[in-house]
């Protein structure tokens, strides 16, 4: 048995220390609200113990002002912490636009990380220090949850839907990452490490684990293999929308609504093409459900995201 007794987790980011400070402050308030109760109960139990001769004369058993004040004042104090904590939480939902984007696919019972340069790793994630990193995550099967205690961060990873999480680690080191949502037999084993590296070490690591193709280039290969290019290229005879510059653009749908073409929309349109049809096109695209796994989808989405708006035509 290891005899060390850690009492506080590592702090690997400014957010982690901000959360800890919030916890200290709130714990202080909690003690301020509860310790008097504990002390009074003990004092009363001793002082007014049955049989002891003390003055027990007291006023009527009702004091509305007192009761309202001991309900309202603690609540208002707690409310200050609510705003503090909500402010930290909202910050987590707004990744900086410049963030390094890494894709994550979870499946029972492993984590797969895809760097934009095409480097893939399993149960281990290398990130540069001092640079915002945005993880776009999806599950191949059940709900998982990526938990990085040293960053005080956790986000459920859902099947069928991208969720995101961002952080900026500022202390190089090796930290634990685990699955926090119960996912079946080997849940306890679904974890590994994330490695925060100095910028130059990260650059070297990328090179050493170098691959021939970037993620988008791997996606392009798949795009051809699965015949997507047959319809979606400018030269195609089939009447299909061009995908150049699609990412981030509003798309008019057949029902009359407009949707922003984000990762989710692109992924869903590959799997369920009839669901959100672009206006003005025949519904002839076959589904790629049960054909493409989430890893391949990630790559194709990365490819489509990389297409620049040179030849975009809103209405052909």
């Amino acid at each position: 048995m290891r005899s060390d007794l850690p009492l506080w987790p590592d702090q690997a980011s400014a957010h982690a220390s901000a959360v800890d400070i919030l916890l200290y402050g709130f714990t202080g308030l909690i003690f301020a609200l509860s310790v008097p109760v504990f002390i009074l109960i003990i004092v009363f139990a001793v002082r007014y113990r049955r049989g002891r001769k003390v003055n027990r004369r007291h006023q009527v058993n009702r004091n509305a002002l007192l009761e309202v004040s001991w309900s309202v004042i603690p609540f208002l104090l707690i409310l200050c912490f609510f705003f503090w904590s909500a402010w930290l939480f909202f910050d987590l939902k707004h990744p900086p636009a410049s963030a390094l984007e890494i894709d994550v696919v979870a499946k029972r019972w492993m984590w797969k990380f895809q760097h934009p340069g095409g480097q893939g790793e399993i149960d281990e994630l290398h990130v540069p220090v001092g640079e915002p990193v945005k993880l776009t995550m999806i599950s191949q099967d059940v709900i998982h949850s990526l938990y990085m205690p040293a960053l005080r961060l956790k986000q459920d990873v859902l099947p069928g839907r991208y969720t995101t999480m961002w952080f900026q680690a500022d202390k190089p080191g090796i930290y634990r990452l685990t699955c926090a949502e119960f996912c079946g037999t080997n849940h306890s084993l679904m974890g590994g490490h994330f490695v925060v590296m100095a910028q130059q070490d990260y650059a070297r690591w990328l090179q050493e684990s170098g691959v021939d193709q970037t993620l988008a280039a791997q996606g392009e290969t798949l795009f051809r293999t699965y015949g997507c290019s047959g319809c979606h290229s400018p030269a195609a005879t089939v009447h299909a929308p061009s995908l150049d510059g699609l990412y981030g653009r509003p798309v008019a749908l057949q029902g009359g609504e407009t949707i922003i073409a984000d990762e989710q929309y692109i992924r869903d349109s590959i799997l369920l093409p009839q669901q959100q049809m672009a206006a003005g096109y025949p519904s002839i695209m076959p589904t790629f459900k049960n054909v493409l796994g989430e890893d391949d989808l990630t790559k194709i989405v990365a490819y489509i995201k990389s297409l620049k708006a040179t030849q975009w035509r809103e209405h052909p």
């Binding site: 919030l22 707690i78 904590s85 930290l88 956790k154």
Partner: peptide, 17 residues
């Protein structure tokens, strides 16, 4: 009172589950 800690959004992200 530790339930209140869990109700705090930013702290819950860390200690949930």
């Amino acid at each position: 009172l530790t339930g209140l800690i869990l109700a705090m959004l930013a702290i819950d992200v860390h200690v949930h589950d």
